[in-house]
């Protein structure tokens, strides 16, 4: 759903009016951007080499140190198994990032393909594909994901599949709009008259020109997917793993909020920080990749 909103921000602008903007960016924008990039780099580092960054093994339990508040030994405190919350957050980044990135990758590829075919071929194919996308859109994303996740059974990959399904319509619509807009441009029409094959035109001219908004949307969508994944954990179809992802940590820790606030607060902050950073980067990308805005950003 979040992707759909972003899509609309873009489509809305494009369809409505040509615009010229100037001096949109505050000077402090760079600071924010660097901070966001640093946060993402940090999380990526956690996901790649958690054992370097985590002070303890994430599965180490100790019934002598249950629910201890943050201290020097445990900067984020310990949870109800006596595990170190900081280590859990560091290790949990792997699956959390995986859920975010993989579901957007799948949703983006599938949705992009549907949109591209639909827009480029048009006609009946277009009608059928777009009705199918409408069908997906009538079911609220959370419920669709809930139903699919319970149908497939709890596993990380199934959760990714469930989340990605809800992102398909947004990508499909965006890609279709892009393709439609580009395929009727004069130079495309011209190259067709020169005798380049349909596919050749698509591959050489339409696709490269239609990709950038998709990339922007994908970036913005990563945050949304992580949130949807944690929502699934809340609704009871989370994945039980030796090392839980952030959504699962947050969801399991929430009933301890009044007695041990740190158990769910730090995973929650990690989610918030990641989603926030991804959004900042996404905004920046949108400005960079938008041909009409190129040169304005920074």
């Amino acid at each position: 759903m979040r992707e759909r909103l972003n899509l609309n921000i873009m489509l809305g602008k494009r369809e409505l009016r040509p615009y010229r903007t100037g001096g949109l960016r505050p000077r402090s924008y760079n600071v924010l951007l660097i901070a966001a990039a640093a946060a993402i780099a940090w999380f990526a580092g956690c996901a790649i080499a958690p054992d370097w960054l985590a002070p303890y093994p994430p599965t180490e339990m100790s019934s002598d140190s249950l629910m201890q508040p943050p201290s020097w030994a445990h900067p984020f405190g310990t949870d109800y198994f006596g595990r170190d919350v900081l280590s859990l957050v560091v290790y949990g980044s792997r699956d959390s990032l995986f859920i975010g990135v993989a579901s957007i990758l799948i949703g983006g590829l599938a949705g992009g393909a549907i949109g591209a075919i639909s827009g480029y071929i048009g006609g009946l194919t277009d009608a059928v594909f777009m009705r199918a996308v409408d069908v997906l859109m009538t079911i609220p994303g959370v419920l669709l994901a809930l139903a699919v996740a319970s149908a497939l059974g709890p596993s990380l990959f199934n959760m990714v599949a469930a989340v990605s399904l809800g992102t398909i319509p947004g990508f499909a619509r965006l890609m279709r709009g892009q393709t439609l807009g580009i395929k009727n441009r004069p130079y495309i029409v011209a190259s067709r008259s020169v005798g380049v094959t349909r596919f050749g035109i698509y591959w050489k001219h339409v696709l490269p020109n239609s990709l950038s908004p998709l990339v922007v949307m994908a970036t913005l969508g990563i945050g949304g997917s992580i949130l949807t994944g944690s929502g699934l954990s809340f609704l009871g179809v989370g994945v039980l793993k030796e090392i839980p992802d952030w959504g699962e940590l947050l969801s399991q820790g929430r009933s301890y909020l009044t007695v041990a606030w740190w158990i769910c607060t730090f995973p929650g902050l990690a989610i918030a920080l990641l989603v926030l950073s991804v959004n900042v980067i996404g905004d920046w990308l949108r400005d960079r990749l938008d041909p009409r805005r190129r040169g304005e950003a920074n």
Binding site: F234, G247, L250, R254, G268, A272
Partner: peptide, 30 residues
């Protein structure tokens, strides 16, 4: 633009979209 109000508004905006809703709901409730 770029004044304190801008920053507060944008922060609220980002906060709204970056927290899982069940979490912010429980926090408000508590």
């Amino acid at each position: 633009r770029n004044g304190p109000i801008d920053w507060i508004a944008r922060f609220v905006g980002l906060l709204g979209i970056s927290m899982p809703n069940f979490w912010s709901g429980i926090l408000l409730l508590l």
